[in-house]
Simulated scan of single mutants.
Amino acid sequence: MKKIATYYVFSGANTALVKVEQPIPELNAGEILVRIRYTTLCGSDLHTYCGLRNEPSPTILGHEIVGVVEDISPSHSGLDAQGNSLHIGDLITWTVFSSDPSTGVYQSETPQKNDKLYKYGHRQITEEDNLHGGLATHIILRPHTCLRILPKDISLAVAATINCAVATSAGALRLAGTITGKNIHIAGIGLLGLVSIAMCRELGAKNIIASDINPARLAMAKSFGASHTIDLSETEESTLLQDISVDRFIDMSGSPEAMELGIETLALHGSAILVGAVFNQRKTGIDAEKAIRKMLTIKGLHNYNYTDFSNAVDFIIENWQKYPFTSLIEREFPLEEVNAAINYALTQKPIRAGLAIYTPITQI
Protein backbone atom coordinates (compact mmCIF):
# COMPACT_ATOMS: atom_id res chain seq x y z
CA MET A 1 0.00 0.00 0.00
CA LYS A 2 1.32 3.43 -0.95
CA LYS A 3 0.42 6.76 0.61
CA ILE A 4 -1.05 9.40 -1.67
CA ALA A 5 0.16 12.99 -1.91
CA THR A 6 -2.01 15.85 -3.14
CA TYR A 7 -0.56 18.94 -4.78
CA TYR A 8 -1.76 21.89 -6.84
CA VAL A 9 -0.10 22.57 -10.17
CA PHE A 10 0.69 25.99 -11.62
CA SER A 11 0.92 25.81 -15.43
CA GLY A 12 0.64 29.40 -16.61
CA ALA A 13 0.09 33.00 -15.58
CA ASN A 14 -3.32 33.90 -14.17
CA THR A 15 -4.58 30.35 -14.57
CA ALA A 16 -6.23 28.41 -11.76
CA LEU A 17 -4.07 25.80 -10.07
CA VAL A 18 -5.14 22.21 -10.74
CA LYS A 19 -5.34 19.46 -8.13
CA VAL A 20 -3.23 16.32 -8.69
CA GLU A 21 -3.03 13.16 -6.60
CA GLN A 22 -0.23 10.63 -6.90
CA PRO A 23 1.48 7.92 -4.89
CA ILE A 24 4.40 9.13 -2.79
CA PRO A 25 7.59 7.64 -4.28
CA GLU A 26 10.18 5.72 -2.29
CA LEU A 27 12.83 7.94 -0.80
CA ASN A 28 16.22 8.14 -2.47
CA ALA A 29 19.47 8.25 -0.51
CA GLY A 30 19.65 11.12 1.97
CA GLU A 31 16.05 12.27 1.51
CA ILE A 32 13.37 13.07 4.09
CA LEU A 33 9.61 12.91 3.57
CA VAL A 34 7.76 15.76 5.27
CA ARG A 35 4.02 16.09 5.83
CA ILE A 36 3.32 19.78 5.28
CA ARG A 37 1.39 21.51 8.05
CA TYR A 38 1.37 25.11 6.84
CA THR A 39 2.39 27.18 3.81
CA THR A 40 2.26 30.95 3.43
CA LEU A 41 2.03 32.74 0.09
CA CYS A 42 5.19 34.77 -0.49
CA GLY A 43 5.31 37.75 -2.83
CA SER A 44 7.44 35.79 -5.29
CA ASP A 45 4.70 33.13 -5.53
CA LEU A 46 2.21 35.84 -6.44
CA HIS A 47 4.62 37.43 -8.93
CA THR A 48 4.97 34.06 -10.64
CA TYR A 49 1.21 33.54 -10.70
CA CYS A 50 0.71 36.96 -12.32
CA GLY A 51 3.44 36.42 -14.92
CA LEU A 52 5.79 39.03 -13.44
CA ARG A 53 8.34 36.33 -12.67
CA ASN A 54 9.24 33.38 -14.89
CA GLU A 55 9.54 29.90 -13.39
CA PRO A 56 9.79 26.52 -15.13
CA SER A 57 6.31 25.06 -15.37
CA PRO A 58 4.33 23.06 -14.61
CA THR A 59 5.45 23.56 -11.03
CA ILE A 60 4.30 23.42 -7.41
CA LEU A 61 4.52 26.91 -5.97
CA GLY A 62 5.17 27.67 -2.31
CA HIS A 63 8.44 27.74 -0.38
CA GLU A 64 7.48 29.27 2.98
CA ILE A 65 6.67 25.92 4.56
CA VAL A 66 6.71 24.13 7.88
CA GLY A 67 6.02 20.43 8.33
CA VAL A 68 6.41 17.21 10.26
CA VAL A 69 8.93 14.47 9.55
CA GLU A 70 7.12 11.41 8.18
CA ASP A 71 10.00 9.27 6.91
CA ILE A 72 13.80 9.44 6.89
CA SER A 73 16.11 7.73 4.43
CA PRO A 74 18.47 5.32 6.23
CA SER A 75 21.43 7.06 4.60
CA HIS A 76 20.49 10.47 6.02
CA SER A 77 22.62 11.61 8.96
CA GLY A 78 19.50 11.72 11.12
CA LEU A 79 20.59 15.07 12.55
CA ASP A 80 19.46 18.66 12.15
CA ALA A 81 21.85 21.59 11.69
CA GLN A 82 22.39 21.82 15.46
CA GLY A 83 23.27 18.14 15.79
CA ASN A 84 19.90 17.19 17.31
CA SER A 85 18.52 13.75 16.46
CA LEU A 86 15.59 13.74 14.05
CA HIS A 87 12.54 11.64 14.84
CA ILE A 88 9.31 10.84 13.03
CA GLY A 89 6.80 13.47 14.11
CA ASP A 90 9.33 16.27 14.67
CA LEU A 91 8.21 19.70 13.50
CA ILE A 92 10.91 21.14 11.22
CA THR A 93 11.82 24.06 9.01
CA TRP A 94 14.48 24.03 6.29
CA THR A 95 16.34 26.22 3.84
CA VAL A 96 14.53 27.08 0.59
CA PHE A 97 17.44 25.49 -1.24
CA SER A 98 19.55 22.37 -1.32
CA SER A 99 23.19 23.23 -2.08
CA ASP A 100 25.73 20.51 -2.85
CA PRO A 101 29.09 21.44 -1.23
CA SER A 102 31.02 19.12 -3.56
CA THR A 103 30.52 21.36 -6.60
CA GLY A 104 33.51 23.30 -7.87
CA VAL A 105 31.94 26.74 -7.42
CA TYR A 106 30.57 26.17 -3.90
CA GLN A 107 31.28 28.94 -1.39
CA SER A 108 30.28 28.45 2.23
CA GLU A 109 29.49 32.16 2.67
CA THR A 110 26.97 32.08 -0.20
CA PRO A 111 25.63 28.51 -0.57
CA GLN A 112 22.46 30.01 -2.08
CA LYS A 113 24.49 30.95 -5.16
CA ASN A 114 25.88 27.50 -5.84
CA ASP A 115 25.80 25.86 -9.26
CA LYS A 116 22.77 23.63 -9.97
CA LEU A 117 20.94 24.84 -6.87
CA TYR A 118 17.78 22.91 -5.96
CA LYS A 119 15.14 25.47 -4.90
CA TYR A 120 11.88 24.36 -3.33
CA GLY A 121 8.80 25.91 -4.89
CA HIS A 122 10.76 26.89 -8.01
CA ARG A 123 11.19 23.64 -9.95
CA GLN A 124 9.51 22.03 -12.91
CA ILE A 125 7.47 18.91 -12.25
CA THR A 126 8.76 15.82 -14.04
CA GLU A 127 8.10 12.12 -13.59
CA GLU A 128 11.37 11.79 -11.69
CA ASP A 129 11.24 15.09 -9.80
CA ASN A 130 8.13 16.27 -7.99
CA LEU A 131 6.84 16.92 -4.47
CA HIS A 132 9.11 19.95 -4.20
CA GLY A 133 6.68 22.79 -3.43
CA GLY A 134 4.55 23.98 -0.54
CA LEU A 135 1.07 23.92 -2.10
CA ALA A 136 0.87 20.22 -1.34
CA THR A 137 0.31 17.72 1.42
CA HIS A 138 3.88 16.41 1.27
CA ILE A 139 7.35 17.49 0.23
CA ILE A 140 10.56 15.51 -0.17
CA LEU A 141 13.67 17.23 1.19
CA ARG A 142 16.70 16.47 -0.94
CA PRO A 143 20.25 15.84 0.34
CA HIS A 144 22.23 18.93 1.42
CA THR A 145 19.11 20.70 2.73
CA CYS A 146 19.84 22.50 6.01
CA LEU A 147 17.04 21.94 8.54
CA ARG A 148 16.16 22.69 12.14
CA ILE A 149 13.80 21.07 14.64
CA LEU A 150 11.20 23.50 16.05
CA PRO A 151 9.28 23.53 19.33
CA LYS A 152 5.93 21.80 18.89
CA ASP A 153 4.03 24.70 20.49
CA ILE A 154 5.21 27.34 18.03
CA SER A 155 2.63 28.99 15.77
CA LEU A 156 2.65 27.06 12.50
CA ALA A 157 1.73 30.19 10.54
CA VAL A 158 4.66 32.14 11.95
CA ALA A 159 7.05 29.18 11.63
CA ALA A 160 6.25 28.87 7.92
CA THR A 161 7.77 32.29 7.26
CA ILE A 162 11.14 31.50 8.83
CA ASN A 163 12.81 29.99 5.79
CA CYS A 164 12.19 32.95 3.50
CA ALA A 165 11.32 36.35 4.95
CA VAL A 166 12.83 35.88 8.40
CA ALA A 167 16.06 34.29 7.18
CA THR A 168 16.50 36.96 4.49
CA SER A 169 16.03 39.68 7.11
CA ALA A 170 18.68 37.99 9.25
CA GLY A 171 21.01 38.06 6.25
CA ALA A 172 20.39 41.76 5.69
CA LEU A 173 21.31 42.58 9.28
CA ARG A 174 24.44 40.44 9.03
CA LEU A 175 25.60 42.48 6.04
CA ALA A 176 24.66 45.74 7.75
CA GLY A 177 27.19 45.17 10.49
CA THR A 178 26.84 46.68 13.96
CA ILE A 179 23.23 47.52 14.85
CA THR A 180 23.55 48.17 18.58
CA GLY A 181 23.44 51.88 19.32
CA LYS A 182 22.99 52.78 15.64
CA ASN A 183 20.28 54.71 13.81
CA ILE A 184 18.56 52.42 11.31
CA HIS A 185 16.30 53.32 8.37
CA ILE A 186 14.20 50.48 6.93
CA ALA A 187 12.23 51.12 3.73
CA GLY A 188 9.38 48.85 2.65
CA ILE A 189 7.17 47.62 5.47
CA GLY A 190 6.07 44.21 4.35
CA LEU A 191 7.00 41.06 6.23
CA LEU A 192 10.72 41.55 5.56
CA GLY A 193 10.62 45.11 6.84
CA LEU A 194 8.63 44.24 9.96
CA VAL A 195 10.93 41.34 10.84
CA SER A 196 13.98 43.57 10.33
CA ILE A 197 12.52 46.21 12.63
CA ALA A 198 11.94 43.66 15.40
CA MET A 199 15.44 42.25 14.93
CA CYS A 200 16.97 45.72 15.14
CA ARG A 201 14.98 46.40 18.30
CA GLU A 202 16.25 43.18 19.88
CA LEU A 203 19.82 44.09 18.89
CA GLY A 204 19.58 47.43 20.68
CA ALA A 205 19.31 49.93 17.83
CA LYS A 206 19.16 53.56 19.00
CA ASN A 207 16.48 54.75 16.55
CA ILE A 208 14.56 52.70 13.99
CA ILE A 209 12.96 54.70 11.17
CA ALA A 210 10.36 52.92 9.02
CA SER A 211 9.35 54.38 5.65
CA ASP A 212 6.57 53.32 3.30
CA ILE A 213 3.70 54.74 1.25
CA ASN A 214 1.06 52.85 3.23
CA PRO A 215 -0.07 54.41 6.54
CA ALA A 216 -1.48 51.08 7.78
CA ARG A 217 1.88 49.40 7.26
CA LEU A 218 3.60 52.23 9.12
CA ALA A 219 1.25 51.69 12.05
CA MET A 220 2.29 48.03 12.03
CA ALA A 221 5.93 49.13 12.08
CA LYS A 222 5.34 50.88 15.40
CA SER A 223 4.00 47.65 16.93
CA PHE A 224 7.20 45.86 15.86
CA GLY A 225 9.50 48.42 17.44
CA ALA A 226 9.92 51.34 15.04
CA SER A 227 10.63 54.58 16.87
CA HIS A 228 9.80 56.86 13.92
CA THR A 229 7.85 56.53 10.66
CA ILE A 230 7.90 58.41 7.36
CA ASP A 231 4.96 58.35 4.95
CA LEU A 232 6.63 58.63 1.54
CA SER A 233 3.27 59.29 -0.13
CA GLU A 234 2.94 62.69 1.54
CA THR A 235 3.72 65.66 -0.68
CA GLU A 236 5.51 67.55 2.09
CA GLU A 237 8.99 66.07 2.45
CA SER A 238 9.95 64.88 5.90
CA THR A 239 13.08 66.34 7.50
CA LEU A 240 13.50 63.36 9.83
CA LEU A 241 16.27 61.81 7.75
CA GLN A 242 18.23 65.06 8.07
CA ASP A 243 17.50 65.42 11.78
CA ILE A 244 18.65 61.88 12.65
CA SER A 245 22.08 60.79 11.47
CA VAL A 246 21.33 57.46 9.74
CA ASP A 247 24.01 54.79 10.08
CA ARG A 248 22.31 51.87 8.33
CA PHE A 249 19.78 51.82 5.50
CA ILE A 250 18.02 48.56 4.63
CA ASP A 251 15.75 48.56 1.60
CA MET A 252 13.01 45.93 1.42
CA SER A 253 10.80 47.94 -0.95
CA GLY A 254 12.62 47.58 -4.26
CA SER A 255 11.52 51.12 -5.09
CA PRO A 256 14.21 53.15 -6.90
CA GLU A 257 12.90 56.31 -5.24
CA ALA A 258 13.12 54.74 -1.78
CA MET A 259 16.63 53.41 -2.44
CA GLU A 260 17.83 56.75 -3.76
CA LEU A 261 16.46 58.59 -0.73
CA GLY A 262 17.90 56.05 1.71
CA ILE A 263 21.39 56.14 0.23
CA GLU A 264 21.31 59.93 -0.21
CA THR A 265 20.56 60.48 3.49
CA LEU A 266 23.14 58.10 4.98
CA ALA A 267 25.70 59.60 7.33
CA LEU A 268 29.50 59.30 7.17
CA HIS A 269 30.60 55.63 7.04
CA GLY A 270 26.97 54.61 6.50
CA SER A 271 25.96 51.25 5.03
CA ALA A 272 23.12 50.46 2.62
CA ILE A 273 21.80 46.94 2.19
CA LEU A 274 19.56 46.46 -0.86
CA VAL A 275 17.21 43.46 -0.75
CA GLY A 276 13.88 44.32 -2.36
CA ALA A 277 14.78 45.06 -6.00
CA VAL A 278 14.30 41.58 -7.44
CA PHE A 279 12.19 42.55 -10.44
CA ASN A 280 12.64 44.65 -13.58
CA GLN A 281 12.37 48.40 -13.04
CA ARG A 282 14.16 51.62 -13.90
CA LYS A 283 17.79 51.99 -12.87
CA THR A 284 18.52 53.44 -9.44
CA GLY A 285 20.59 56.63 -9.43
CA ILE A 286 23.41 57.12 -6.94
CA ASP A 287 25.45 60.29 -6.42
CA ALA A 288 28.92 58.77 -6.70
CA GLU A 289 30.67 61.85 -5.31
CA LYS A 290 28.59 61.75 -2.12
CA ALA A 291 29.10 58.00 -1.81
CA ILE A 292 32.87 58.56 -2.02
CA ARG A 293 33.06 61.55 0.29
CA LYS A 294 30.82 59.88 2.89
CA MET A 295 32.78 56.62 2.46
CA LEU A 296 29.56 54.63 2.11
CA THR A 297 29.23 50.87 1.80
CA ILE A 298 26.51 49.53 -0.50
CA LYS A 299 25.74 45.82 -0.61
CA GLY A 300 23.11 43.63 -2.20
CA LEU A 301 21.59 40.46 -0.73
CA HIS A 302 19.73 37.67 -2.50
CA ASN A 303 18.34 34.92 -0.25
CA TYR A 304 20.54 33.93 2.70
CA ASN A 305 23.20 31.54 4.00
CA TYR A 306 23.11 28.86 6.70
CA THR A 307 24.13 31.21 9.51
CA ASP A 308 21.27 33.54 8.57
CA PHE A 309 18.85 30.60 8.55
CA SER A 310 19.84 29.43 12.03
CA ASN A 311 19.77 32.98 13.39
CA ALA A 312 16.26 33.33 11.96
CA VAL A 313 15.11 30.12 13.65
CA ASP A 314 16.55 31.24 17.00
CA PHE A 315 15.00 34.70 16.65
CA ILE A 316 11.48 33.39 16.01
CA ILE A 317 11.68 30.76 18.77
CA GLU A 318 12.64 33.51 21.22
CA ASN A 319 10.41 36.31 19.98
CA TRP A 320 7.35 35.07 18.09
CA GLN A 321 5.09 35.82 21.04
CA LYS A 322 6.82 39.10 22.00
CA TYR A 323 5.80 40.81 18.75
CA PRO A 324 2.43 40.47 16.90
CA PHE A 325 3.72 38.02 14.29
CA THR A 326 0.54 35.93 14.30
CA SER A 327 -1.48 38.96 13.15
CA LEU A 328 0.54 39.15 9.93
CA ILE A 329 -1.11 36.04 8.49
CA GLU A 330 -4.29 37.97 7.89
CA ARG A 331 -6.46 35.14 6.59
CA GLU A 332 -6.15 31.37 6.58
CA PHE A 333 -7.47 28.90 3.99
CA PRO A 334 -7.54 25.11 3.72
CA LEU A 335 -5.33 23.70 0.96
CA GLU A 336 -8.32 22.83 -1.25
CA GLU A 337 -9.15 26.55 -1.40
CA VAL A 338 -5.71 27.51 -2.70
CA ASN A 339 -7.12 29.43 -5.68
CA ALA A 340 -9.30 31.51 -3.36
CA ALA A 341 -6.24 32.14 -1.19
CA ILE A 342 -4.26 33.41 -4.19
CA ASN A 343 -7.13 35.66 -5.25
CA TYR A 344 -7.40 37.05 -1.73
CA ALA A 345 -3.66 37.72 -1.57
CA LEU A 346 -3.70 39.52 -4.92
CA THR A 347 -6.77 41.65 -4.29
CA GLN A 348 -6.48 42.42 -0.58
CA LYS A 349 -2.67 42.57 -0.38
CA PRO A 350 -2.26 41.22 3.15
CA ILE A 351 1.17 40.78 4.70
CA ARG A 352 0.55 37.06 4.22
CA ALA A 353 -2.27 34.66 3.42
CA GLY A 354 -1.85 31.19 4.91
CA LEU A 355 -2.78 27.65 3.98
CA ALA A 356 -3.39 25.25 6.87
CA ILE A 357 -2.87 21.73 5.61
CA TYR A 358 -4.50 18.77 7.29
CA THR A 359 -3.37 15.51 5.74
CA PRO A 360 -5.59 12.46 6.20
CA ILE A 361 -3.71 9.22 5.57
CA THR A 362 -4.83 8.02 2.13
CA GLN A 363 -3.47 4.80 0.71
CA ILE A 364 -3.88 2.73 -2.45
Rank of each mutant, 00 (worst) to 15 (best):
T229I: 13
L17P: 15
T39M: 09
L191M: 15
S77D: 14
I32H: 04
D314V: 01
Y120W: 03
N319G: 08
L191Q: 09
L241Y: 04
G300M: 01
A267W: 09
I273N: 06
P256W: 01
A167P: 14
L355T: 08
F249G: 02
P74K: 00
F315I: 07
A198Y: 14
I32G: 01
N214T: 12
P360N: 06
G193R: 05
S327V: 00
Q281G: 10
W94Q: 00
A172E: 10
W320S: 10
A159S: 13
L150E: 06
L194N: 11
Q363I: 14
Q82F: 09
G190S: 03
G67W: 03
T59G: 06
G133M: 05
G67H: 00
K2E: 14
Y323A: 02
G51E: 02
G83L: 01
A277S: 10
A216L: 13
L296P: 15
L150Q: 08
Y306R: 06
I184P: 11
G300F: 01
L27C: 12
L175Y: 13
Y306A: 00
A157C: 06
G89F: 05
V96A: 09
S211Q: 11
I184L: 04
K299P: 04
S238R: 04
S310F: 08
N84L: 01
N183C: 09
I213L: 15
N305S: 02
P324Q: 09
T39K: 11
I140K: 02
H144C: 07
L191D: 04
I230T: 10
G254T: 10
D247R: 03
F333D: 12
L296K: 08
D71L: 07
I286H: 03
L346P: 13
M220V: 04
G204L: 07
L218P: 12
S102M: 00
L240I: 15
P74V: 04
R174H: 13
T93W: 05
A272D: 12
I125P: 09
T40L: 00
A312Y: 14
Y7A: 03
E55S: 10
Y358T: 15
T103D: 08
T168W: 01
N54S: 15
P56W: 00
A277H: 04
N163T: 03
C42L: 03
G51P: 10
G262M: 07
P256T: 08
